[in-house]
Structures are given as structure tokens and as C-alpha cells.
Write a protein that binds this DNA or RNA. Sequence first.
DNA 1: GTCTATAGACGGATAGAC
DNA 2: GTCTATCCGTCTATAGAC
Lengths: 226, 226
Amino acid sequence: MTHDDALATPTENDEPAAPMRRRKAHIRESNEAHLVACAEAVFAERGLAGASTAMIAERAGLPKANLHYYFPTKLDLYRRVLEDLFEDWYRAADTFECSDDPVEAIGGYVRAKMALSQRRPLGSKVWANEIIHGAEHMQDILTQRVKPWLDSRVVVIESWVSRGLLAPVEPQTFMFMIWAITQHYADFDAQICALRGEREISRRAFDDVTEEVVALVIRACGARSP
Amino acid sequence: MTHDDALATPTENDEPAAPMRRRKAHIRESNEAHLVACAEAVFAERGLAGASTAMIAERAGLPKANLHYYFPTKLDLYRRVLEDLFEDWYRAADTFECSDDPVEAIGGYVRAKMALSQRRPLGSKVWANEIIHGAEHMQDILTQRVKPWLDSRVVVIESWVSRGLLAPVEPQTFMFMIWAITQHYADFDAQICALRGEREISRRAFDDVTEEVVALVIRACGARSP
DNA sequence: GTCTATAGACGGATAGAC
DNA sequence: GTCTATCCGTCTATAGAC
């Protein structure tokens, strides 16, 4: 924790100190980001308990001690991965707001979630793993960040239903359905590949599946444009 | 492995040996079943790597050495849990065959899968966890047992589509949707509870959700009775 | 078939030189 | 900020008495 010295000592007008601080800050930033990315992969492959800091450090090309210099405990690193994932999830969630037309809004959201599953499947797996094992390390993210967003979407869906633009769906169950099916394509890819008899899902096949999922979801909620 | 002696030695007409063998076999059977049940819970809570044989033995009320007497390695026990889960999954799968009416057949299957999620959520979590981490310990179950069943259902769905009893869905994507949403209620219960602001899902609420899910799935595939 | 004790490997975290 | 060496706890699995 030698870096706290720079903050504790008043060096505001100390010419050489400021660039130095910036350079060190940059090193820290880039090393941390690299470690978080590598950690996401190892946590996805092995789970929190199964992942070792040695594996993560090795994948990052750093000695294990450096990892513990930036993230004192394995749990600190794990938390950072989860927070990073939430930010990405939240950006995809924004898609829901863009239109008052349920076909557009819901279709767009499903496409955004499918794209996220395709772009960052390892992250989705870390998230799923954490929830499956009780979500003890992300209760705060769920109740303080995800829940308010979900509640606001429930209101929008209810208004669509009351205006006759949607079948009388239970909004939460419907949202869970969207999450379940879109994340399934990231989390369960090993099963999907085994059952399709392929080694991996091609980009083209994924795009086809995306449109099929959109069609299923739109029919499920009976959406029609206003 | 002292038990193999009983099989190796010809003692067919040895009066006291036969009941003894049966008694011992019964002890083995009941201890193994108990261990498998306890293991399922611990694997669900902690994952394969996070679960220790000591935890499983403690939950079973046995010394750790006894566990290794019945299941030489942790992986042997884990495999048994997975095989046991598949048997249950397969029984629920039978529901699909009972009717040529797609509304009945699909609705019944969704209800059976939801009931399985409610009855054995820990098992579902072990399954999900295994798939998420690459399914390396159940490739054989997927390709030799699940895949043939899925392929046979695809044929049935295609026939419904061609007879105009179903919207033109892609059968695999549709089946994956059913699996994703029904298993979501077992695997992601921690998230669902956090977002509903409840400690657990009541039996009554689960029944309501089940019917809502059935309605969503039936609308999604556009099923109608012949 | 049951149980205590322990071997042997591995993992998280830290000390301290550079 | 980097890295080697190491402490100490935990884990799987087994030896061997009962």
C-alpha cells in the first residue's frame, strides 16, 4: 500500500511528482484491467473455488505475488469481475428504453442480450455460477442495481398490457423468460454444442438463432405495434 | 474391495453366506444412496471444486474414510450424482410422449419440468454447474442419452408444424427455450428471490408461475389442438 | 464395514530483497 | 512496482487398527 503515501503527502505543486503519479496510476490501471479479464476467463472455466490465483496470474503472465499486490485477496478480484459484468449488463439493458413500441423495444432488448451472450459468454458464466451458488457476493448488486431497473420495466410492460399492445403477461415472469433464454446460449454452450454435434456455434448460426428467439419471445407476449 | 471375494468364491449353496451377502449389499446400497443425496446438496452449494469430501461426509454423518470406502474418489461420487440426475430428467421427459395434441404434450412437459425444478432444485444446479464449466464429466450422457431423445422430439415437433398445429418454429431452439426457462426457476432462485424481495418462493407462487410459463410457451409456439 | 491418524499435494497469502 | 521463497492451512486419499 505504498501508493497511499502519494495521496497522504501534499505534493500538489511538486512538478516531477505529478507525472510520476500519473505514470504509476496508468500502470496500475492497465495491470488491473488485464488481471480482471484473465480472472473472468478462469472463474468462468473453474468457478470461484476451483480457480486458483496461481492460474489467473499465469494466464496474465505475471507472478502470483503481483496479483496479490493489486488485489489483496482472491475475493477482491472476484468482486471486481462481478462489478465489471454488471456495467456491461446495464448497458445492454438501456436498449429497452429506446421505443414505446413493444415489438421494437422487446425485440431490440432480446437482440442486445443475445449479442452480449455472444460477445462475452465467459462473463455470463461467471454471473450464472455466482447466482447458482447463492449469490452471496452480489446481493448488493441485485437489490440496489438490478431490482430498481427491473421494477421500472415492470411498469412499462404493465402499461403496454393495459393499452392492449401486449397479451396479459405477468411482467416479472416474462422478463425472467427473456433472461433465461438469452443467457442460456452463453451459459449452456457446451450442452448446445454436444446436442448439435458441433464443436462451436458459428457466427452465422448464432444470428439465425437470435432471430428465431426474437420471434418466439414476441409471439410469447403477443406484442403488436401501437 | 473385500466384497469382490463373495463374487469370486462359489458359495451358491452356502446357507449362512447368502443372507450375509444380502445384508451387506443392503448396507452398501443404503449408505451409497445417502451419500449421493448429501453430495448432491454440497455440490449444488459449492460446485465440484468447492465441495470437499469432508463436508459431504459430515452432512451424511459418516467419517470421511467411509465415503472413500464407497466412492474411491470424489469424481466417482460426482459422476454418480450426475447419472442419478439424468434418470430423473429422463422420467420427466417421458411426459412429452403422452399425447398427439401439441397443447397437451407441450403444456404437460413444461409442467413436468417446472415440477422437477421445484422438487429437486439442488440437482438442477449441479447439472447447470457441470454444463457451465464445460460438461467434461458428462459428454457421454449428453451425446448418448440426451441427444437421441432430443432428436426424436424434433421429429415430432416438425410433424406438428407441417400439419399446421404449430407456428413454424425451429424445433431445437424451441426445446432449448423450454429447458432454459423451466430450469431458470431452480438454478437462479437466489436471483429471483432477491428481485422479488422474498426469502423464498412459496408453493402457491410457484404454481402460479408454472401456469404463466405454460401460457408463454404455448403462445410462443402458437400451438393449437388438432 | 467402521474409524483414527496421517501422508502428501496444493492453494492463499506474505516477507523481504531488488 | 516486481519477484522469489516460504509459511500455514486445507484438501484428497490411504494405512492400518478394530
